[in-house]
């Protein structure tokens, strides 16, 4: 990691990972992640339609939790990383302290995006009643999991030390 974060393009790895995550956001949100077949009534759901379904079930709190974990957090992380990358062009940064805190927050929330991946696994592992009722995973969840892993790797690759005056590693030109 350290070799990639020094030199002419100190953020090459972060940018590459974050850009890949943005690309993968498209199939992650468009492809169905789960298919449900209960009492002959079949439906497939994307991440978003699953949240709408929870809302229509009357489970507003649960819908809000899943919305935060699956849609808000990936978006916040990618937008936050972008602003941190832009901010790191002014070094030393006057707001380094706040930005470092912000980075720590981004790093903390990332793992909660895995909620939907766990959820799809649990639902399809539990509801197995043959033709009467069954839930199965769909490939969209693979795209979504890829987004989660890529955003986590991107956040981990960002080195908040570039916001501070003494960046001791590598040979950065001022």
């Amino acid at each position: 990691m350290s070799s990639a974060s020094s030199g002419r393009f100190p953020h090459a790895r972060v940018v590459a990972l974050a850009a890949s995550a943005v690309v993968m956001l498209v199939p992650a949100n468009l492809l169905p992640v789960i298919s449900t077949n209960i009492s002959g009534e079949a439906r497939t759901d994307t991440i978003y339609s699953g949240i709408v379904g929870l809302w229509q079930q009357g489970l507003w709190g649960i819908a809000a939790i899943v919305f935060t974990a699956s849609i808000l957090v990936p978006f916040l992380k990618l937008a936050g990383l972008t602003s941190l990358l832009i901010a790191s062009h002014w070094r030393p940064n006057r707001h380094a302290r706040q930005l470092t805190r912000f980075y720590a927050g981004l790093d903390f929330i990332g793992r909660w995006s895995m909620l939907d991946v766990f959820l799809v696994g649990l639902l399809s592992g539990l509801v197995q009643f043959g033709s009467l009722a069954s839930i199965e995973p769909r490939p969209g969840i693979a795209a979504f999991a890829t987004v989660v892993v890529l955003t986590m790797l991107a956040t981990q690759s960002f080195d908040p030390r570039v916001l501070w005056p003494t960046h001791q590693r590598g040979s950065l030109t001022p």
Binding site: G121, L122, S124, G125, Q128, E136, P137, I141, A142, A145
Partner: peptide, 17 residues
Amino acid sequence: SGVAALSHGGLQPIAML
């Protein structure tokens, strides 16, 4: 069980994750 279900659904890498 979730790991097994994802694996049966052809999503082995996600099952591993």
